[in-house]
Simulated scan of single mutants.
Amino acid sequence: MAVTLPVAEPPELKKYSGPQRAAALLLVLGKEHGAPIWESLSVEEVKELSSAMSQLGRLPSAVVEYLLVQFSAEVSSMASLHGSHETTERLLAGIMPPDKVREIMEDIRGPSGRTMWDKLSNVGESVLAGYLKNEYPQTVAVILSKLKPDHAARVLAELPRDFGVDVVTRMLRMDTVQKDVLQEVESTLKTEFMSNLSRTQRRDPHESMADMFNAMDRATEEAMLNALEERAPESAERIRALMFTFEDLTALLPEAIAAVVKNADKKTMALALKGAPEEARRVFFGGMTERAAGMLRDDMANMGPVRARDCEEAQSQLVRLAKTLAAKGEIVLVDPKSDDAVII
């Protein structure tokens, strides 16, 4: 059954912050209905909501009713859940021993990338060369042939000179690598190299900073990032990317997706979706009319081959657009580090 939102929010609502609204909602839900939500929260989230709840005082009935109706409407319209490292780890912690959870999470976190070769491209050349110098030259030749040329060149420069020349000679004579050989090399890299690397490698400080910035209010976040851009623009851009990604856009509510589609440059949208997985495309096409979706598909087909770098930049532009719309209060961003709070 469809839920009808009040025409206007009650004036009293403005004096309640986001955490206070969430706390009010949980207070209304009570022990029986609120327990599943409390159980899914982290210790810090429980502390924050408990503190907010203790300071609520008397809640006007109009505020309570509005929060309940808004929550019901938004949850019923959500098309999907959003998974992240944090929510996965929290789930695993409830069903297996801590050491096993730690082992699994260390393995899947590793250097980012969709395939083994993507992951290797994110490993520093000195670290990778330190591992490869102990392998057979033929195996190293196979691995370097799968890396991006610029990264392979840097790795070669780190290898012992004679060993590196041997590897290059084998690469020149190498025919198409058989599928079973490639699979065996990938398997060895995963079990012997990537797994050990994820256990010993220090977490990227940009990830830690992204977590910190996610916890800030938007005004403070923007002020800090703008200041950081003046001193270290690359670091600022890296943090922005980690805070909210193109993949995170697909977890937005349908109304938010429609707003992004409406405000986006059509060429940028076509380029972004050209390099997107089919699932992400379906989400964005769902925010358009059938006619508009058909025209966009035609634009994508007529583009021909495009550089992956250009697609990624277009996707970044859509992310920046979504954050701009959120800052204006036109849409609500689903926090990529959490799957629980939707009331802001």
Rank of each mutant, 00 (worst) to 15 (best):
A152F: 01
L333Y: 04
E32D: 08
P336H: 02
P336Q: 08
L249S: 05
P36L: 02
D175F: 08
F213I: 12
L56V: 03
M1S: 14
H33R: 07
M116K: 02
A276Q: 03
L26T: 15
E312D: 08
Y131H: 11
A280I: 11
M174H: 11
K146P: 01
W38Q: 05
M269I: 08
D162H: 13
D217H: 08
R282Q: 14
L26G: 14
V261N: 15
L56S: 05
D310R: 04
A24D: 01
R297S: 15
Y131D: 00
E279M: 07
R58F: 00
D310S: 09
M105I: 09
V165L: 14
L68S: 15
H82I: 02
L27V: 04
S61P: 01
Q315T: 00
L321Y: 06
P137F: 08
I104V: 15
A22P: 07
E330H: 05
E158W: 05
P60N: 00
L132F: 07
T176S: 14
D118E: 14
L253Y: 10
E237L: 11
G294S: 12
G304M: 04
A259D: 09
A232E: 13
Y66G: 10
A129F: 02
R170C: 09
L333M: 07
A23N: 07
R320V: 07
L29F: 09
A256W: 05
D204F: 01
L25A: 13
P6G: 04
E222S: 11
A264S: 14
A129T: 07
M171S: 09
V140Y: 02
K337R: 15
P254A: 14
K47Q: 14
S195E: 12
A232V: 05
E135T: 10
V334D: 02
Q70G: 03
D204Q: 06
H85M: 14
E89W: 11
L333C: 04
L189F: 06
P233M: 05
M216V: 00
A73G: 04
M53T: 06
K100M: 03
A308L: 15
L333H: 08
P233L: 03
V46L: 10
